[in-house]
């Protein structure tokens, strides 16, 4: 089992001088689904931001190796090309940039990275059409500005649509279930499951066990005070749903 997709070792990171991640260790192999849960403020979103390369966060210690590459040395766009995808908790609205231009720029930048010619207009539109179906995304959204005026559900579906287009090796879904109604949750989860293969992996960051009914994790980690303090199987999520975090907090704080 030496086939490792992502290996995070002793990762420390923070924002504006405040340390938030205090030594994260995490190993993800191809085909695995990892859920990361934890109370508010424990560092879940920071972990996803740091892995994706958000310049607002500074890494102070530790490493992250992504299929043999030093992930932290790459620009955010190159992390994307290498197969990392972050589904944003709050997808950003970009007035004036149409979805079509946005996706064309993304797709062609990746092709350029791998020395390929840009996709022809016809092939590009065909790709868009195919991938839209994964999350039942309305065609009319394509002509609109990125996320502008999208409903909460549309924004999250749009994230999974982009994931479908970019075919990442590792997807980080940062609270993809927040702001979703039951139908949208089902559609988004079904989309994620359709994209699942034995080769690619997923990190699901969530507060609620409910999402894990749809996207079944192999491992569940509990993040608390910037560290992964507990790791278990899917049953850990059920236990958390039932008992809350206090028992873990006590366990850790009393150590």
């Amino acid at each position: 089992m030496d086939n490792i997709l992502l290996k995070v070792e002793n990762l420390h990171a923070g924002i504006e001088g405040k340390e938030i991640l205090k030594g994260i260790n995490l190993t993800i192999r191809p085909g695995e689904v990892h859920a990361i849960m934890g109370p508010n403020g424990s560092g879940k979103s920071t972990l996803s931001s740091v892995l994706a390369g958000n310049p607002a966060f500074k890494v102070t210690e530790g490493s992250a190796t992504f299929h043999g590459i030093d992930l932290l040395a790459l620009a955010p766009e190159d992390r994307s090309h290498e197969g990392l995808f972050l589904s944003f908790q709050y997808p950003v609205e970009i007035p004036g940039v149409s979805m079509v231009n946005f996706m064309r720029a993304a797709v062609n930048a990746k092709r350029k990275y791998f020395g390929e010619e840009p996709l022809s207009a016809g092939d590009f539109l065909k790709l868009m059409r195919q991938k839209r179906e994964v999350v039942e995304l309305d065609n009319k959204l394509a002509s609109r500005s990125v996320n502008e005026g999208f409903s909460g559900g549309e924004k999250k579906r749009n994230e999974i649509f982009q994931m479908a287009v970019l075919e990442p090796r590792l997807s980080i879904l940062d609270e993809t279930d927040s702001g979703l109604d039951i139908d949208a949750l089902r559609i988004v989860s079904a989309g994620v499951n359709k994209l699942k293969t034995n080769e690619n992996s997923t990190i699901v960051i969530t507060h609620y066990q409910r999402l894990l009914d749809y996207i079944k994790p192999d491992f569940v980690h509990v993040l608390y005070k910037g560290r992964i303090v507990k790791t278990g199987g899917p049953e850990l999520a059920l236990e958390l749903e039932e008992k809350g975090y206090d028992w873990i907090k006590q366990e850790i704080d009393n150590q």
């Binding site: 972050l86 004036g96 946005f102 990746k110």
Partner: peptide, 29 residues
């Protein structure tokens, strides 16, 4: 908008291209 820039980069759009797209978008109206 730094958030928009990072969002575009996270989708693989190089920083300079993303900047240019945002500038053009700014002029659109």
């Amino acid at each position: 908008d730094a958030n928009a820039l990072f969002y575009m980069q996270a989708r693989g759009i190089p920083y300079e291209t993303a900047r240019r797209m945002l500038m053009i978008a700014f002029m659109t109206d």
